[in-house]
Structures are given as structure tokens and as C-alpha cells.
Simulated assay, not measured.
Amino acid sequence: MGGNRVKLANRLNLFGVAALLALPANASAETARSLQREFPKLETAKSAINLRELQSGGVPRDGIPAILDPQFLPVSEATELGSDEPVIFLSGTCGAYAFPYRILIWHEIVHHDQCGVPVAVTFCPLCNTSMVFDRRVEGVVLSFGTSGRLRHSDLVMYDHQTESLWQQFTGEAIVGRQVGKTLAAVPARIESWQRFREEFPDGRVLVPPSWGRSAYGRTPYEGYDSAPSPFLFQGRMPRGIDPMARVVRVGTRAWSLAWLRKNSPVETMDGLRLEWREGQNSALDRALISRGRDIGNVRVTREGADVAFSVDFAFAYRAFYPQGELVK
């Protein structure tokens, strides 16, 4: 594992992901004092967790910079993406917008206005978790950045308004004035670039920011999804399934991606339909995302309408939902 860690750490990252991967697994936990040095407005006395569950990810606040003012190109003008590269996308009466993982992997949070709804499109590479959240909380539109902290190896976001900390995996506020509040998940689809452009030829696609300095199209996490164990995770490993196996999560329930691949389509008693189709690269495999191994496309619907879901690593699912129902 040490050799893999060094290999990953030596991959390029001008924003500090290499530093994150080079950290020892027992990186020091956070304290109220260390948090408030970077987040002076954070009310650490209000916490839903033990602060020692938070770990430094090796980068400071905004060390991995969110995209707050996204720019898009028409599908017909986008030529850089490989056909099977993954994108997460939203569609509606205002059009369809795709967010390539080749950009998300370097920025982790992208702000967007989807048909009048302010959303945050998020991706945590260490948990493989993609979620889209409505940024409105009790009538106030929040904006988010990366805190530089992790919990259970998952991205911890912060809002600029109160500097409260939010768990990306669940959308819950875990420290600060917003504790007790949860961001609403917005249904989105995670499919290949080819499938998006075929279905939405008039759609638009996110392009790298003009100030970006990263090697878009490459991943700093080469080989991560075939590592024997996750980084910066000290919890219990799941039983009966590889910790780095992918699972499809809807709410607190999950299905092994390998099981879904063999049994697709699957229909549940409460009306969910889960489908798997080949043709999507892993963003955490080969150095070039466009050459990553095929993990396939997943779609989750109920009565034909998209349902919010994510594709997570099994260790993260068990960490956040230890009693959750996992079909494997």
C-alpha cells in the first residue's frame, strides 16, 4: 500500500490533492481551536459530532477551490471529452447541463442555477460520492466552499454565510449555527458523455474556469478505486463486501453495483427501478479518465421520473449508514 500511496501522491495537483494523499492514515484530528483559526465565524459549541472525527485533508480552507461562477459551452462545441467519460447532469425546462468529472475531480463543488433553483453539484473522490443539493435553507441561498477537512474520508463543505460545516455524503450540517438542517438532494443522472450528448444535443457542458491550473482530463487519484483500503479512514470496514466496491445508494438503502450489473433491471416493492448499462469510465482508475475501466451507467427512477441517488464506495456507505440495508 505504501508504494501505491507514493505513486498517487506524486501525481500532479496544483491545488494540493497530492498533499492529501501523502498524509498518513492517522492524520491528526481537529479541535475547536484549530477550526476557528480558519473559520472565525464557526460556532464550534454547536456540533452534532465529536470534533475529533474531523481530520485535516492536507489542504487549507478553499485549498481545493469551488467553482462559483460556472461557464458552459454548447454540446456541439465541446471536443475534449472522451465518449465514455463520466458526467453528472441536470435537465429541465431551461435545458440540460452536464458537469464532467474531469473538472469536478479538481474542484469538488460547482455552483449552478438550474431552472431557477440554486444548486451545488458536488463530488468527493475519496468516497466516489456525487450529490446535487438545493442551496436554499429556510429561504436563504447559501454558497459553499471546501473546508479542507474530511470525516469518514468524505468531503466536509462549509457555507460562506455562517461558516457552518456540512457533510457532503448526507447534506447535513454537522458543526455550527446550521446544525439540525439538511440540504435537499436534487435528482441528477450520472452517465457517459456520449449518452448525454445523444439525448440532449442542444445541451450545455461545464468548461474549466479561466483561472484553473489543473490537468483537466487526468486524475490525481490514479489506481485509487483498486486500492486495498481507503485513505484517511479509521472506521470499521464493511463485512461481506470489498471496502472499495461501488454501491448504488438511494436514501439509506444500497445495492452492490456488481449485483445490479448481473440483475439489471431491478424493481423494488416501493416502485424504484434501477438499471445498469455498460459504457462509462471510472474517474479513479487510469491516469487519463478517458481510459479508465468500464464501470457502467446507472439510472434510478420511480414511475419514469429520476430519483436522487449516488454511487459510493462500500466503506463510506457503511460508515454513514451502519444499519442500512445493503443488497450485495
Rank of each mutant, 00 (worst) to 15 (best):
R236T: 07
T252M: 05
T219C: 12
E172Y: 05
Q194A: 14
P243D: 00
L165R: 09
I241Y: 05
L155R: 02
T219E: 13
T162D: 14
T162Y: 15
T268K: 14
R149Q: 06
S143N: 08
R236L: 14
F144T: 02
S143L: 06
G240C: 02
P201G: 12
R177T: 02
D154Y: 12
E163T: 13
V175N: 04
R197H: 13
E191Y: 13
Q168V: 02
G139A: 11
I190G: 02
Q161A: 13
R253V: 01
R151S: 07
R204I: 00
G212N: 14
D159Q: 10
S229F: 04
S147K: 12
E267Y: 14
S214L: 07
V141T: 15
H160F: 15
A254T: 01
L150I: 02
D270C: 00
L142F: 10
W211S: 11
M244P: 03
Y158D: 14
H160W: 15
R136M: 06
L260H: 01
T252G: 04
M269I: 08
F231M: 06
E138R: 10
G145W: 10
Y221D: 06
G176Y: 08
A184Q: 14
A254G: 00
D270S: 02
V141Q: 15
E199Y: 08
V175W: 05
E138W: 05
S256D: 00
D225Y: 08
N263F: 01
K181G: 05
E222A: 13
F233R: 01
V137M: 09
R197W: 13
F200D: 09
S164D: 14
F169I: 03
Q168W: 09
S264F: 07
Q234I: 04
